[in-house]
Amino acid sequence: MRFNCVIINVYGPNEVGLRKELWDLLVSLKSKFLGPWCLGGDFNEINIISEQIGCSRRDRGMKDFNDMIEQLELIDMPMLGRKFTWCNSQDRAKWSRLDRFLLSHEWVKNFNFKLWGLPRLLSDYSPIILMEDARHCKPKPFKILNAWLLHPNFLSFAQRCWSRFVLEGWVGFQCFMKFKTQKEALKQWNVEVFGKVENKLKCVEKEAHALDLLAEDRPFLPTEIIRRKEVRGDVWRLSKMLEWIWLQKSRMNWALEGVKNKRFFHITACSRNSRNSLCSIVVNDSMLEDPIEIKAEVEFTEEEISTVIKTRDGNKAPGPDGFNIAFFKKCATSRMKQVMPKIIIEVQSAFLGGRNILDGILIANEIVDGWKRSNKKCLVLNWILKRPMT
């Protein structure tokens, strides 16, 4: 694979002002060297306050450093093996992470890089090495993409797959098997029908541009008017899908509030994927790097699992099956509406469509008033069911 890139070895000056001049120089060079950037070396600056121990605060320099990283749209590669790269080797030890690699997202997309901190021997500095990890742990687990919900055929396909699989057994077993079958069907549907959204978007954008150029030369024919309307709809729908895909991968909520920078979400998703990689663990003072050994050692307590489930948001998957809350809102709600009237008592008045929470109060008042007017004796019970504390 041919990969044109820009590699820069950096040494940051000791003074904050001189470092700021260096950061500004790097930003100005970005427009002249357009390939994917790789910056590595001793930046003499930290990214966050937790990257130092026993040192004086350096808020100004840290802000300038982060501004440079943001302007260059770089990913700060997380370091494995150790936390810091520099120590003053004194009795009152001071630690800092001054050395690092900053990569453009194209690097992370095309290579499986890992940054390791190596043992510090006689020097105050620990060497670092950026190397490609050729290990393949396992295929990525299945997960519902929220962008699927925007496809016009998704809902009907999901309902059809759910309904056509019939088997005997208790309800829990039936649901388990139906979800298992649904998962395999959606994987195949994603490849054959949903496809590569980015490629589809490029095609329809190209066609939309061609239609615009045609409109500049002559009036549209009736069929061309219809086609341009269809293409514009496809551009909007595919753009929205692509935005949702990167929003979900980046785990950011900014797009819901109006920010639609897909490149930003792409960079955030790549950075998150690097941070979440579990490449090694320490067990009984011994480091394990083999994926099979790591999988065998990593165990989660019931309390940890319970905490994760209770604190998840709607975009998280409720279990290892990969079906998130958005899927159930889209597919299960319509099915629940059909059975809800059969399992809810007629006198239930709250939280149901077509019924008002005040109906019960009004009916109770009318009954009491009727008893008063007829001078009948009655007994009124105020029964409050309180949700148990968990």
Rank of each mutant, 00 (worst) to 15 (best):
S274A: 14
V347P: 00
L278N: 07
K342N: 06
N199I: 00
K20L: 06
C87M: 04
K183V: 01
N9W: 09
G35P: 03
D212P: 00
V16M: 13
L385D: 14
D67I: 07
E346H: 04
N253V: 11
D124A: 03
V308K: 11
W116Y: 09
D217F: 00
R312V: 02
G169F: 01
C378Y: 15
N365E: 10
N273R: 10
M287I: 15
L352P: 03
I325V: 12
L22R: 07
I267R: 11
G370D: 07
D24Y: 06
W162T: 02
M252L: 15
W107C: 03
C378F: 15
S334P: 00
R82L: 11
K83A: 11
N356G: 00
M1W: 06
T85L: 04
W170I: 04
T223Q: 09
G117T: 09
M241E: 09
L362K: 05
W23V: 05
I128R: 05
S50H: 11
L186Q: 08
F176S: 05
I363M: 08
F154I: 02
W148E: 03
I294V: 13
L25D: 11
K94M: 14
L103A: 08
E21F: 01
F176Q: 14
K187W: 01
D321F: 10
K138S: 09
A350V: 07
M68V: 08
F176L: 09
K206N: 12
F165V: 15
P222E: 12
K109S: 14
C161S: 09
S239N: 13
R312Y: 02
Q174T: 06
P78H: 07
D42W: 02
D124T: 05
D24C: 09
F111H: 10
K20E: 15
F176A: 12
Q159A: 03
I384W: 05
N273Q: 12
P78T: 01
D64T: 03
H209K: 11
L358M: 14
S239K: 10
C137V: 14
V204D: 06
I69K: 14
I267N: 08
L381V: 14
I292P: 04
G81V: 13
E192P: 05
L25K: 06
G81F: 08
E304Y: 08
A210R: 14
E168A: 10
F323N: 01
W23E: 10
Y125K: 07
S89A: 10
L130C: 09
P139D: 08
L39Q: 07
G81N: 06
W23S: 03
V16N: 12
G354S: 12
G322K: 02
F111G: 04
F323V: 02
I325G: 07
K20F: 05
P318V: 10
C378R: 02
I281F: 06
W148F: 08
K20D: 13
